[in-house]
Each structure stands twice: as structure tokens, then as C-alpha cells.
Design a protein around this nucleic acid. Structure first.
Lengths: 133, 133
DNA sequence: CGCTTGCTTGGAGTGCACTCTAGGTAAGTA
DNA sequence: TACTTACCTAGAGTGCACTCCAAGCAAGCG
């Protein structure tokens, strides 16, 4: 395989929306909605007008999945997507966005752990005596 | 102070809704809404019909805050509140509910940490080279 | 041929957790 | 007296992130 071929292999239209649903766990509705709001590039279309997604789309969706799983709001993902679309020159800003988000996630984890301690304490109380709320 | 007095001290109506807003960070709307849906007992009223919350209410709201901060849906808090209202005999079930919730929170923390690793990896990429999305 | 399956669209609907509106009462201050 | 502030109610509205609906098209199967 030549390098030129390898470089575009992940752009070859391959997957129907149903296949992407299977691979990502997102619903077809959600995939179309992501496309509509600009979170996902318009994919190629079959000669019947059906969407055909490529491996790059799957990679992008997996990354969006990380952002979503860490609680980034859709508006934030959209900002990132717009920076990516703007192309070269926005890398520093993209990195900045991710770094800020990482800080928020770390704070959320710390917060969860602190609140978990209170929960543990309460559970212990129920184990020892029976007169608590 | 006699023990009988001490036992009911936290039930003395003391705080206006505004004071509870200050102490809990919840809005007055939210406090009334919690009451309406059964998450909070109907507090005492002044002779003008205004709510007067007691220390027990503040303690309960603080605990609800823990549940909320750990992502328990209002429906779950409601279930817990109903068990508490049902009184003695429901302690095992209450404990069960909290233990289940703790497991979910632990799972969420693990999930966040796993997704954070991917985020870190991506941020590193931006630090090293400039051709990623 | 009829039926099912999988896809298409724009726009409406859902569930959650608030959040606000309108219209009112009562107390305190200039 | 006029005004401000804090509270009251029932019910409507908001923002988020989907989620679904109706109506239609094309392919494949018995």
C-alpha cells in the first residue's frame, strides 16, 4: 500500500448509519443531530442519498465520546469542533480548551470523593445503630 | 439544658426561607419546589404564613446536597425521603439504597479517571506535534 | 405483488431539574 | 403616604441533550 493510499484510507466511505450506531452506541437520531448542529462533518452519501461514514468519523466520534463521558457540554464540544474545522493555527487554543476541561474533571473527581466520604459515614451509621435519617 | 429540651432543639422553627437560601446555596424557588414534591417536610409557618425552617431541615438539606452532588436523581432522593418518613423498620432498605448509590459513584469515578487518561494523551499529542484533531 | 427493513427529512416532543412569572400580602423605612 | 423588601401561591417557561414522529423512498425476500 502506498503512503498516499494509507493517508486517505480512513477517509473512505464505508459505514452505514446503522453500522456506526453499533460501533459507537449512539442512536441514529443522535448521529443525525450531531451532524445538524455541526459536531460531525457531513459524511459522504451513497448514490441513494444514504450516509456513508468513514474511519475518521469513527475516531472523531470516539473522541467526542471521551469528552461527553467526562461531562463536557455539547457547546464545548462544538467549540472544539469549530477549531478543528478552522484547521492549522488553532492547535494552541484546542489544547487550552482540553487542559481547562481536564482541570474541571479533576475538580469533579475530588468533589465526588469528598461527598463519597459523607456517604460512607452515613452508611456506617446505619450499620451501627438504627436511629438515623 | 435538660435532655428533653436538647432532643427537640433542632426542631425549633428558626430560619426564614431567605436564611436557608444563604446557608444552603439553594434558591427559594428550589426549596419550595423540594417541599412541593415531597423531598422536604412542610416546615412550620409564622403567624403570617411564612415558612420557618429548623436545624433539622438544614441537616436534611445538607445530606440531600451530598446525594445531589454525587449525581443521585431527584427520584432517588425522593425514594429515600419516603423511607425516612415511613420511620422505623425501613433502615435496612435505606442503607441498601445508599450502598447501591455508593457503588454507582465509585463506578463513575473510575469511568472519569479512565476517560481522563485519553484526555491526557490527547493533550500530550498537542504538546509534541501539531497535526492532530 | 405485498411485506419488511433500513434509511431519509423537518419539526415536534420528552424528561430532568429547576427557574421564573404574575399577582398578592405584610412589615419596615424616608 | 409612598416605597422597598421579603415573603406567598399556582402554574408556566427554560435549557440541555436527546428522542421521536410522520411520511416517504429503495432494496431484498417469498
Amino acid at each position: 500500500m502506498s503512503e498516499a493510499t494509507a493517508m486517505t484510507a480512513e477517509l473512505v466511505p464505508r459505514y452505514t448509519i446503522g453500522e456506526v450506531v453499533e460501533r459507537t452506541g449512539l442512536s441514529a437520531h443522535t448521529l443525525r443531530w450531531y451532524e445538524r448542529i455541526g459536531l460531525l462533518d457531513h459524511p459522504a452519501r451513497s448514490h441513494h442519498g444514504q450516509r456513508r461514514f468513514c474511519d475518521a468519523d469513527l475516531g472523531w466520534l470516539a473522541f467526542l465520546g471521551n469528552l461527553r463521558a467526562t461531562g463536557m457540554p455539547v457547546a464545548g464540544m462544538l467549540r472544539y469542533a469549530e477549531l478543528v474545522r478552522a484547521g492549522a493555527g488553532t492547535e494552541a487554543e484546542r489544547r487550552e480548551l482540553l487542559v481547562e476541561h481536564r482541570e474541571e474533571v479533576l475538580a469533579r473527581i475530588r468533589d465526588l470523593q469528598a461527598n463519597l466520604l459523607v456517604l460512607d459515614y452515613k452508611i456506617d451509621l446505619y450499620g451501627e445503630r438504627q436511629d438515623c435519617t
